[in-house]
């Protein structure tokens, strides 16, 4: 569903993570859920909060604030789960993003969106599609496809599974893995 910028202006959903305001393309957003119990999946990084039941499917929820290193989301009445559709290697999958709050749908003129700064932004530059400005505040526009298809999410095995060699009698796992596993 992600539609690339063609029109003069684009619509974005804005949300807050800590003190930052982020925006994602409205075309990527499938729905917005109130916070509900998230089923924890063991042996996954902490920012992978688990899965929620979205009409009968288990949808992974990512704590973006934690992933971006902005601290953990405190659950409040305003906490929301934004369900997005992402494209990743031709496949479309559904993921949830935990947000401190969801603000509004904004229309931003395409030529008012600036390229991301090389450094100094709150999150990794390649996750940012651009910077917009609204009501005197800067808004980081996230590249949803990139954020959710990043290696840390799509290949958690890099970080966690090496501790489990598949063939018995082949013990070449190191103690370091165990350390990572329990962190």
């Amino acid at each position: 569903m992600a539609v690339t910028a063609q029109a003069e202006s684009q619509r974005f959903l804005t949300m807050t993570l800590g003190h930052e305001i982020f925006a994602i393309d409205i075309f990527s957003v499938r729905e917005i859920l109130d916070y509900t119990d998230i089923t924890r999946i063991p042996q996954t990084p902490e920012f992978m909060r688990g899965v929620v039941n979205v009409r009968g499917s288990a949808v992974p929820v990512v704590d973006l604030r934690m992933k971006f290193g902005l601290g953990q989301v405190e659950r409040t009445l305003n906490t929301r789960i934004v369900i997005v559709e992402i494209r990743h290697d031709d496949a479309v999958s559904v993921m949830g993003a935990l947000a401190d709050s969801v603000k509004e749908v904004l229309e931003l003129e395409t030529d008012r969106i600036d390229p991301p700064p090389r450094m100094g932004a709150a999150v990794r530059a390649d996750f940012i599609r651009g910077i917009g400005k609204h009501a005197d505040r800067f808004i980081l526009i996230l590249d949803v496809d990139k954020v959710f298809s990043s290696d840390e999410i799509q290949d958690m095995s890099q970080m966690f599974a090496e501790g489990a060699p598949s063939a018995p009698g082949a013990p070449f796992a190191s103690a370091q893995v165990e350390e990572e596993f329990v962190r």
Binding site: T39, P42, M48, V51, A58, P60, D155, F160
Partner: peptide, 19 residues
């Protein structure tokens, strides 16, 4: 059985989820 998202494929000991 509902399969789990591909991003969890390294967790071989989960064969799926159920609602």
């Amino acid at each position: 059985i509902k399969s789990l998202d591909d991003c969890y494929r390294h967790l071989k000991w989960i064969s799926g989820t159920t609602i």
